[in-house]
Lab assay of single mutants.
Amino acid sequence: MQRVNMIMAESPGLITICLLGYLLSAECTVFLDHENANKILNRPKRYNSGKLEEFVQGNLERECMEEKCSFEEAREVFENTERTTEFWKQYVDGDQCESNPCLNGGSCKDDINSYECWCPFGFEGKNCELDVTCNIKNGRCEQFCKNSADNKVVCSCTEGYRLAENQKSCEPAVPFPCGRVSVSQTSKLTRAETVFPDVDYVNSTEAETILDNITQSTQSFNDFTRVVGGEDAKPGQFPWQVVLNGKVDAFCGGSIVNEKWIVTAAHCVETGVKITVVAGEHNIEETEHTEQKRNVIRIIPHHNYNAAINKYNHDIALLELDEPLVLNSYVTPICIADKEYTNIFLKFGSGYVSGWGRVFHKGRSALVLQYLRVPLVDRATCLRSTKFTIYNNMFCAGFHEGGRDSCQGDSGGPHVTEVEGTSFLTGIISWGEECAMKGKYGIYTKVSRYVNWIKEKTKLT
């Protein structure tokens, strides 16, 4: 034993070699072989497995989906700052455009905790909710729209109204504003409101030439003092309507412009014939205590009207009353817009006519005020429907199939267009061939041609 100890002390290297040989010859039971080890760690190889990531292109799944990435790591994937920024906006807080917040056709661009709407022409605001041009839906104005110097929408209202708090709607500024039905039992019968379409306001006024200088022999019209197929109006439903009495009662109609003036057809009036105007009328054979009678003290036909040349060209006249009318729910003026808007309103496509005229061709006159909704007829169809001249200051309205029309005794009465609950004068009943005849239409004086003249002559002093 002493000898062994001496050998170990003198030859430590020998001992180490012996131990190493023993270990190498022993069977290893701690580690699995290569094949079995792979069965336990069965993990798919990654895209760049075996390579240094710093030297390969980034992978979106590896960089940002398996674990949260930084902007720089995302930049490695896209290799483009702009594309990385677009991805980053949604990656950080989701897609803010998912709810489609942009209105009126706006395009949404996502941002971090926010979004941006790219608005089409005519709109602005956070969600493109603000109209900035009158060309689109009248700028959301209830009545009139004008573009300011910086191309912003400025709404306005006709006389007797003021802008509401929203700067879009119009509200009454006087007790009985024009064009409004205020009798409670008839307010439910107000005709369907007309909503502004998209309009090209630059070209809204037709490029028409008034044929002022045409000389033409007097034409022989049949029954051209021209509501057939209409309905009984309720008291106060058309408070701007008046009836004219002269040699015979209810020979023509008219509309209240203001307390002192009536507008009617020029062919209705004769110099030297006494005319009485009755406002607030409903049943011409009954006294309903809503009527107001006034005498006409002055007749002003349009300066281009000449019955000797043509009885229905420039067929418009103004009547001055001896005493002002007292405005109330049964006696209310009709609204008159400017030339541009009167023309736009007419193009809405349908209007209402009213009167006490004959209820059928050569038949009896109506006792109760009649009204009828009539569609506008395109000019080409209008011209083809008659052998008589249709001037540019006239328009056609009615039904091709016949059966409904204005008729004798309705002449001078109103053709009105309702705009968001307020009625505007767009025409004056003038003439036609018979009444409600198939293929024939009622012919009306186009008020847009005469609004400046009306307003100039009827100013209240």
Rank of each mutant, 00 (worst) to 15 (best):
A380S: 10
E231N: 14
K455D: 04
I297R: 09
V419R: 05
S49M: 06
E86M: 10
T209D: 12
E285V: 10
G160S: 08
T218Q: 08
V273E: 15
T422E: 01
D200E: 09
L24Q: 05
E66K: 06
I428K: 01
T426W: 00
L321V: 06
G272K: 09
Q143S: 02
L346N: 04
S25N: 12
S49I: 05
N313E: 09
H282W: 13
L346M: 07
K457R: 15
E285R: 11
S70Y: 03
G432Q: 10
F424G: 00
G58S: 13
R298G: 06
A397E: 01
N306C: 05
V174C: 05
P324R: 05
R180G: 03
C268H: 01
K51Q: 15
E165D: 15
N38C: 04
S220F: 09
M437K: 11
I334F: 00
E53I: 00
I284V: 10
L103E: 13
Y115L: 03
Q185W: 14
I7F: 09
Y47P: 01
T458D: 00
G230A: 15
H314S: 05
E171Q: 11
G439W: 04
K362D: 12
E53L: 00
K45N: 00
K126M: 08
D410A: 10
N283C: 07
C435W: 03
A164P: 02
D378K: 07
V419K: 04
I344T: 11
C396E: 01
R162G: 06
G122L: 05
H314R: 02
T342R: 00
P101W: 04
V377T: 05
F176Y: 11
L327Y: 07
W453N: 01
H415K: 00
G58T: 03
P333G: 04
E66D: 05
V416R: 02
C170H: 00
G13M: 09
N147K: 12
F196G: 15
L367Q: 14
T209Q: 13
M65Q: 08
T445C: 04
T81A: 10
S25M: 12
E86P: 03
I214Y: 13
Y391H: 14
T215N: 10
R46D: 01
W240S: 00
T194D: 11
K260H: 06
D232H: 12
F251G: 05
G229T: 05
I428D: 00
A233V: 08
Y47E: 06
T287I: 13
I443V: 09
D93Q: 13
P44W: 08
E288P: 06
T271V: 08
G432A: 11
S156R: 09
T16F: 12
K387E: 10
V153W: 06
F196P: 13
K339V: 10
S107P: 04
E124W: 10
N135E: 12
L19P: 02
P375N: 13
Y441I: 14
Y201Q: 15
D95W: 08
S220R: 07
E288C: 05
T215K: 07
F224I: 14
M6N: 13
S184R: 10
S354A: 15
R3F: 14
P333D: 01
N343T: 09
G357K: 15
L41E: 03
Q219F: 09
E61C: 00
D223M: 12
H282R: 08
E67V: 00
G246W: 05
T332S: 10
V56C: 03
P239M: 01
Y161P: 01
S148N: 13
S182L: 06
N222Q: 12
P301E: 06
I299G: 05
S156V: 07
S11P: 10
R294T: 01
V353K: 04
K51F: 06
T290C: 06
K89R: 12
E286Q: 13
P12Q: 11
D212R: 11
T85I: 10
E82R: 04
A149W: 07
K459R: 06
I262H: 01
L20I: 10
E434K: 11
G432L: 04
